[in-house]
């Protein structure tokens, strides 16, 4: 769509001027906002290629371009271990969540059983509590089961903690699919299990994909739980590692922190931009109003 800058026929001087002015204003706003959005990004990317280590000396456009910070990041810190730990947690959490939440969502959407309303109400209330309200109990529990300082034990909390929210999400999604589909399958003699795998599962795949993505993403930047439950450096997750790298250490580690941030944020940012439409639809699906 081309922008019409020329004067339209029959347009008075005043309206023409007004139109030109508003076009200029709009572009001015867009440019200013884009700079506000992009400058911090350029600054942190630039900082990661800066010479020196401190916040004070780092520039958005480095004077001498260097990869030192990235090299130091892998040599001096356990960045690679943190990355792998988090990746492991993310993958296991994704699988466990899809399984746990998927079955819950299906059962609550499609099956009739005693205590269903009570169950739905309870998980509705449960999802209002922030996870760390139960943190002290979880700490004591983990201590007694020998699960402290075990990265994979975090999956238990992530996957289970998200069951309430995901159940409602999946249930809401399935409610929009006519029940006649699975009823037809029953009439044709399919068992519950067959109906689930052949009919329901394919229908559920978009919302399960959404759950999978969000649950894969969650551990990367969760801070509170791993910070509380994991103590040794080589078992840390990325979020805790990065936070400890920079907290109070702006002069020694800033450029290294920048490098670490770029390495983890770049893939996620690109992924989110590509998946934007899908993710926004998923986010709003939960609040599907009549």
């Amino acid at each position: 769509m081309a922008v019409q800058l020329k004067r339209k026929p029959k347009e008075s001087n005043k309206t023409y001027l007004l139109r030109l002015l508003s076009i200029i204003a709009i572009y001015l706003i867009l440019i200013i906002l884009s700079v506000a959005v992009i400058y911090p990004v350029i600054w942190i990317v630039g900082s990661s290629f800066n010479e020196g280590t401190s916040l004070a000396s780092s520039r958005a456009i480095p004077k001498n371009f260097t990869l030192d910070n990235y090299i130091r990041l892998f040599q001096k810190t356990k960045y690679k271990t943190w990355y792998l730990n988090t990746l492991k947690i993310a993958v296991v959490n994704m699988i466990a969540s899809v399984f746990l939440s998927g079955t819950m969502g299906y059962v609550f959407a499609r099956l009739k059983f005693a205590g269903k309303k009570f169950g739905l109400m309870s998980i509705l209330i449960l999802q209002m509590f922030p996870t760390f309200m139960g943190m002290v109990a979880i700490y004591v529990l983990f201590l007694n089961f020998g699960l402290l300082d075990k990265p994979l034990a975090l999956v238990l909390i992530y996957a289970v903690g998200q069951i309430p929210y995901n159940t409602w999400l999946i249930k809401g999604y399935l409610n929009n699919v006519p029940k006649s589909l699975d009823e037809a399958a029953y009439v044709d003699g399919a068992t519950k299990f067959q109906t689930f795998t052949k009919i329901i599962l394919p229908i559920m795949s978009p919302i399960l994909t959404f759950v999978a993505i969000t649950q894969f993403m969650a551990p990367w930047f969760d801070f509170i739980l791993p910070n509380y439950l994991i103590s040794s450096d080589e078992k840390r997750t990325l979020a805790v590692g990065l936070y400890r790298l920079i907290n109070g250490q702006q002069n020694n580690n800033f450029t290294m922190f920048a490098a670490g941030s770029v390495l983890v944020a770049a893939p996620i940012t690109i992924l989110y931009i590509f998946l934007q439409k899908f993710l926004v639809e998923g986010l709003t699906a939960g609040a599907n109003k009549e």
Binding site: S34, P40, W43, L242, T269, L271, Y272, Q276
Partner: peptide, 21 residues
Amino acid sequence: TILIIPWAIPGMISLLVFSNF
């Protein structure tokens, strides 16, 4: 696409970057 960049960047990273900014 430019304007949604802040949404796509992990929030924790942005916040830590801003605390230095």
